[in-house]
Every structure is written in C-alpha cells, then in structure tokens.
Design a protein around this nucleic acid. Structure first.
Lengths: 368, 368
DNA sequence: AGTCATTTTGTTAGCGCTGTCATTTTGCAT
DNA sequence: ATGCAAAATGACAGCGCTAACAAAATGACT
C-alpha cells in the first residue's frame, strides 16, 4: 500500500530543527545565523553554516513570511507597450532580487487603467510584497503613489517624470535629447522634425523640452508644425511619416522620441522610396535591439534600462532593509541619474545639398 | 514617541478570524468557502462571501503556503536569447497564473549552463514552487527533466523537442516549415536556401525536416550547400547572408528558421543593395514584432507563443489541482498542438525571370 | 417518533519560522 | 576569587492558515 504520508515533493523537507540538531544549537541560533544577526560567536556561526550545507537546507519562505514582518518579495507592476523595455526592466529587477535573496512578483495592469490606485492597493495586500518597483507609466500616476505612501509601502521608480521626492533612477532625457538635436544640427540640418511620445509617459515632456533646448542652442527656430504628437508605438511613427513626408517642405531630419516610432517612420520612408540617410536622417531614443535590426541601423540614445531597474531595485531593497534599523530618521530620498549616451549609427548623415522630394520611381531608386 | 507597534504596512491586517466572526461561522468554514470546497450550504457561502467583501479580506499567502501543501506559485525558468519570445511567454504564463490565483516566480539560468539540473533543483527547493513552466531550451535538457521527475515536481513544456511523455504545448513546426517552402515553391522558386537554428533548441530539427519535406513535395532536390547552420540570433542571419549572397549561383529565396536570423539576412541584403523581394525572397519563423518593423515586413510563420504559454500553464495548473483528487491513476499526459499559420507579407514574391545578381555589384558579372 | 446515512459545521493541532524575553556564558575590572 | 556588564544562547509563543478528525444538523427511511 501507499504510505499516506507526504503528497508533496519531498524537496527541502529539511527544517530549521534538523539544522539546529545537527549543529548542536537552538533553532534561534540557526535563525540568527541565517539572518546575519549579530552576537553569534564565529565558531558557532561556522558550525551552523556547516550544518546548513551538510543538510542542503534552505529556509521555507512561507514560514519566514508568516513569522516575520517581511515577505522578501518585491512587486513589479507594469503596463508598458514595449516588450523590449519591459523585458530589460524585468531582467534588471530580477537580478537585484536574486542577489539579495528576494523574489520578484509580476503584476500586469489592465489597459483601461480603471481604478488604478485600488488595483495596486489590492495587489499589494494580496501578494504582501515588501516594496514596489514602478516603471513608466505607472510610476507617474499620483493617485497610485499617494495610495502607496498612505499604506507606507516603499517603492522605487524608474525614469519618473515629476520631482516628487522618493527613490528612483532616471536618465537625463533633457540633455540626451538636446544632444541628438546637436548631432543633427552639427551635420548641417536646419529643419529638424520631432515626434513626441505618449502624453502619459514621464519621458515625453522632458524629451520634447530637450528638443527645444537643442534647437535653441543651435540657434534654430522652434516650429510647431515640425512636432508630431505620437504615442511611443510604431504606428505613431508611421503616421508621423505620412505627415512629414507629405509636407510642402519636409524636414531633412526627424528625431523620434523612441525607437519604435523611429522604426515606423523608417518603414514609411522606405515605402515612399526615400533614401535613408541621404534624403532623410532619422534618430530614435532608447537603443532597443530593434535599432540594430532595422535597416539602416538606427542612430539613437542608449538607455541602460536593465541597469536602471537593477539599481532602482537595489535602492528599494536598501530602503527596506534599513527600516528595521535604529535610524528611522529621514534619510535623503535618492534619485540617481544615469548617462544616456548618443549612439550614432546608419540613419543620420549630412543633408543632401538641396532638399528635394524623392525621385519616386518604382524600381530604380538606387541609382548612383 | 513613535509607537513601536507594527512596522509593516497595515494592509491586509484582516485575518480569517475576523471574517469568521463577521459571518458568524468558524474559520474552517471560511476556509472552505475560500478554497471552493464542497459541503457548504449556499446560504452560508453567501454570508462568508459578504463578510470577505465587507472586510476586504484576502488570505495571507505565506500562511496558506505554510499550512497547506502548496505554495500557489509556479516557476518559470528561462534562458532564451530572444526578448520577444520570452516576453510573450512570460505574459502568457502570468495571465494563466493570475486567473487561477497563482503567482509566477521567475528564475534565470546562467549562460554557462553549468550544473543545470542542480541549479533547477535548488531553485525549486528554495522557492517551493508547485510546478514549473519550461520554455526552450531548458525544456529540452533531459537531466533537468529527470531531476524534476525524481522529485515529483510537475512541469509543462512549451515547444518541446522530444517525444517524452508529459504536459506540453507545441506547434507543428514540421508542417509549418513545409508550408513555407510550399509558398516559396508556389511562387516559382527553385533554389531555396535554409538557415537552421541553434542545435540545442527543440524546434531546430523539426524545422529543418519541414524544409526537407517541403522540398520533397515540391519535387525539388535537397542541396546541402543551401543549408546554413545558424544559432537563432541575428548575427547568424548576417553570416548566412554573406554566405548565400556570395554564392556562385545564389538561391532566389531563403527561409530563415526564425525572425531574428531573417532580419540579419535582410540587413546584409540591404547592405549589398539587393532588392527585396524582387531579387531575393526571404521568409522567417515566429512572427515576432520584429517582423513588422523591418522593411519590407517579413513573411513569416505566426507562433502563438503567448497562447501556448498560457495553455501550458493551464495544463500545469490542472495537473497540480488534480493531484489531491482521488484519481491518482495515470491520466494521459497531454501535448496540445497549436496552429502556426503562414503570414505572407512583403519579403516574398515570384523570382525575377532569370536569376541574376543585383545591378550594382562592386565589379563583376555573374553570367546570365 | 426513531434510526441511520449523509451533509454541514466546528475543534484542534500543527506547518517552520521569527520576535520577545529569559537565561547562561564570557570578558574583564576589581 | 568575585562581581557585573555585555555578549551569546535558548525557551517559547505565536504568525494565519489548512488537515484531520469530531460533532452536530439534516433528511430519507422505517
């Protein structure tokens, strides 16, 4: 007959008691060693460590979560249209968590954004996460942040829009954008178009401001007609392409405020047989893998998203770890700023001497 | 002074006891309702549900995990070079988990694959997952599967290579590949190149076989020289491009066994000024977002990865749920097969009348 | 009304840890 | 040796839930 014992996989059946017994100490001491608490004699610590290894013990996270005050889990709430962005963010967050012995719990939010703050609250109370990693655009919704603060749930934001105090990492969108414009202007472009991003996303405003700043520095005039409002998706880029390439006097360069839009624009340009970059320079933003798979490879701004998410998670973990320290005092909330260097690839070049529409013939766009 | 009570966020402080009291029943009855156990009078059930809502209660996962035999968490182990693939798989898995009240725990594996089975084992025992979702290539490593079976840990595989019994979902790679070849042959192509995938990945072999099957059906000869061995990354595609486009008699169509390689190939073709699809037809496999951002948009095979992962997770959850049922008897291990339809876009067309090199080669002519 | 199987509900003992506080040991100055 | 603060260790009570079992209520039959 079958023993009616243990249905569950018999992994990790070793408990703290076994370790304690093996090491000849009390379970409390084992617990101390496990949690790196002070006041354990080095020799004792070593004995416990040996026992842990000998028995291949690893603590039961449920038991820890139940007995302790933390779940050792941090949550990542997302609603981001770009798989690449998100994937890199997840990877970074996960790396930091794994290093700290935490786990990462994902949570999607519905596209309709209805009742966002409540959904977040509910996720937090269901999952009992110790903190939250917020990536755009969720990190820019004040009601969500308010709710989190009200329940004293620590969070860190990646690329936040506002100057709200709190943990976070960001990139200097403004200057990076300005740099793109400087690059284009340096190449000799005078009419530089811009495709702005999703109005709800943090980076949208600062990238637009960077564009203006760049214009200003290059002593070029800002022209409302050269700014197309997009949504960070490739379809926006296509529509922008239709708009710009139909213009009476089309810009000789277009700066799309993310890569997806730049790719969409590039498609339209190809469709219309414009030669890139000879007839039109295009720049993107983000340096997603996409920028290397389109043709020509895209000039863009590199955003170290994985690193940013990793760092944001570290800050968050530090903050959580610090909570039970004595110093409850106000520690300066940190926002770290990462470099976002310009990566010049194949889609930007000096403008053709005279700006003229493409030859526009079906076959021989590739004459020399 | 600060109250030294409760450092932790006071969300979800409501316990099963509060609910029981509010509903006027015992905690066990609440537990029954929560877990959908039978033998609860509908009126009682309703009363408990009301209390749950009134108190905005949600059970503490740690407590459940500790008391019960399951952690309500499933693990996803990954090492996949393609962010798109992975992202879709994660999304699908997460959807299924959310729907079932489970959470998804991610785990990366190091690129060096050292000691894989042990790493997986360790992850399982640390995280206490109830089951594992395995995506390529991890799902095809026998030692890992052996280890999992030995500890009786249920798993489901996405797109497994071998015929090993067990849960899984796959796509009919063989026929999808054959269909691509049929499409190409139907267009009039006689020399059709193939870029194979990473030798460790499951799909590699069946896609190659599908290619051969397609050739056979179209009464074309299999030519070893027309098969280039790649690794599913875009660099492979580039190298394949260098190889094929340098050939004495280049193929008029090339079937890359995934999109990334197709994109790499496309880049090289552009670099060399081949007109696509007029001078060279290209087909991919997977239908990643990439296939719509490259130019021209790629003809490819649509793989419903999100759906597959979702379904695999459902099967896994069913299996886990079924475990505590009476019927321990062998239930037929299921492998569900999904359709992978061909999506014809802009990179395939009938071959030019005579096969000839592009106009603008650096020097020579290659006969006509 | 009485019996008994069946359904419904309740009682209680942990699950494996951590927090609190008590106790022992140690180091060091008398 | 002796005393005493500080360091090291231990005892034990839960954390919030589920499993196993016990008890009560119900209802279909005599």
């Amino acid at each position: 007959m079958t023993q009616k014992r243990r249905q569950r996989p018999n992994t990790g059946r070793v408990t703290i008691n076994d370790v304690a017994e093996h090491a000849g100490v009390s379970i409390k001491t084992v617990s101390r060693v496990l949690n790196n608490e002070p006041n354990v004699r080095p020799s004792t610590r070593a004995r416990v460590d040996d026992a842990v290894h000998a028995l291949d013990y690893s603590p039961n996270p449920s038991a820890r979560g139940l007995a302790g005050t933390q779940s050792r889990t941090i949550g990542l709430i997302y609603d981001n249209p770009s798989p690449n962005y998100l994937f890199r963010a997840i990877t970074g967050g996960l790396e930091a968590c794994e290093a700290a012995g935490y786990s990462l719990s994902l949570q999607t939010i519905p596209p309709d954004w209805s009742d966002l703050a409540n959904r977040v609250t509910r996720f937090v109370s269901r999952s009992r996460v110790d903190g939250l990693l917020l990536i755009p655009p969720v990190g820019d919704v004040p009601s969500v942040l308010d709710a989190l603060e009200q329940m004293h749930l620590p969070y860190a934001r990646v690329a936040p829009l506002d100057g709200r105090p709190g943990l976070g990492v960001s990139v200097d969108d403004l200057h990076a954008s300005a740099q793109v414009v400087a690059h284009l202007a340096g190449l000799g472009h005078r009419r530089i178009g811009f495709i702005s991003g999703h109005p709800d996303h943090g980076a949208t405003r600062s990238r637009l401001e960077g564009y203006r700043l760049g214009l200003l520095r290059a002593e070029l005039e800002y022209d409302q007609a050269l700014v197309f409002e997009g949504f960070f998706d490739s379809d926006s880029g296509r529509r922008a392409g239709d708009y710009f390439l139909e213009m009476q006097q089309a810009p000789s360069a277009i700066f799309a405020s993310n890569d997806e839009m730049a790719a969409g624009l590039l498609q339209v340009a190809h469709e219309r047989n414009w030669r890139i970059p000879e007839q039109l320079s295009i720049a993107g933003f983000d340096d997603t893998p996409l920028s290397r798979t389109v043709w020509p490879p895209l000039t863009t701004v590199h955003q170290p998203i994985r690193h940013m998410a990793l760092r944001a998670t570290q800050l968050l973990l530090e903050r959580i770890g610090a909570e039970d320290d004595a110093n409850v005092g106000e520690r300066p909330p940190r926002i770290e700023v990462f470099d976002a260097p310009l990566v010049v690839r194949g889609t930007t070049a000096a403008p053709a001497r005279t700006q003229q529409p493409p030859f526009k013939t079906t076959a021989e766009s590739k004459s020399l």
